[in-house]
Design a protein around this nucleic acid. Structure first.
Lengths: 151, 151
DNA sequence: AACAATTTTGTATAAATATACAAAAACCTC
DNA sequence: GAGGTTTTTGTATATTTATACAAAATTGTT
């Protein structure tokens, strides 16, 4: 289905470029070979829980909302998790998850919500989530758990 | 000037009730004796950096955006700080700031941004910010500093 | 594969929002 | 307080966004 990859593409686009209107987003998507209309984008934006917010230069842009405020339902989060994660690696007791730029917060939030008890905590930047576990073994374990979820 | 109190009222309204459209907000404000039009609200929303976001029940509502993402300029934040703070009290090494419901995040963010070095950290809920200082003396000091800012 | 049921999408348009421009209000400065 | 300057607001409207409805696509079942 093109739908999920399209939504992932939307997250990618808005994290890399200031998108002011849905029509602008339509153009970007068309350029990336997604043949859709504004109506569909409007629905995607609602589903993804994206926001339109004022920027410093007195314009508007679409953005991914921060984790605590994000009201997207869990199965939607799961879908997004799958779409946004690029790689999952371990380094000793850390699991390093690479994501589409700008979506690390969403991914981190999702991982937190799993409440896996061998996870001590998560931090994230723009495109990286760091999952801290007790030891090397736990790191490997969490890595495999997360990879499982991608299927 | 009615403008600042109106904007504060907007923050209060949206934190207490799900507001789906600007027209709805206009009605609420009219009920609170602010005689304005949709155009003004549109501008206020832009200035306050408010967002319209999808809710669980498949509708939209306006909301205050979380602190880290908030791009409002400092002087605007200062104005909002003044408008949103209700009281500032101390309890031993804590400074307890009461705010309009839903705006504690904004206020906390503003206090953080002051980078006062006797502040150890801030936490917040919906209408309360807790500022932690080293000791009772520092608490009193920060309290007075914050009260100063209200003038 | 034929059919029914569900989901996704486009078209057309209604609904909602942003803004150009002009007027009004607030603020200065002399 | 007259006259100039800046800020705020309303009116009217252009722009943008959401959605009803129908069509198309996808999925599941036999």
């Amino acid at each position: 289905m093109a739908r999920n990859s399209r939504q992932a593409k939307i997250l990618e686009i808005i994290s890399n470029k200031a998108i002011e209107t849905q029509d602008e987003l339509v153009s970007e998507l068309r350029a990336a070979n997604f043949d859709i209309t504004q109506a569909t984008i409007s629905r995607d934006i609602k589903e993804l829980g994206l926001i339109k917010i004022a920027t410093e230069n007195n314009k508007y842009k679409y953005a991914v909302i921060g984790n605590t405020q994000n009201p997207i339902a869990t199965n939607k989060k799961m879908t997004i998790f799958k779409e946004c994660v690029i790689s999952i690696k371990t380094a000793l007791n850390l699991v390093v998850v690479k994501t589409l730029n700008g979506t690390a917060g969403l991914v981190s939030n999702f991982i937190d919500s799993l409440s896996l008890n061998t996870i001590l905590g998560c931090t994230y930047g723009d495109d990286t989530v760091m999952v801290v576990t007790q030891d090397v073994e736990d790191g490997k374990f969490i890595q495999s758990k997360l990879i499982e979820l991608l299927n």
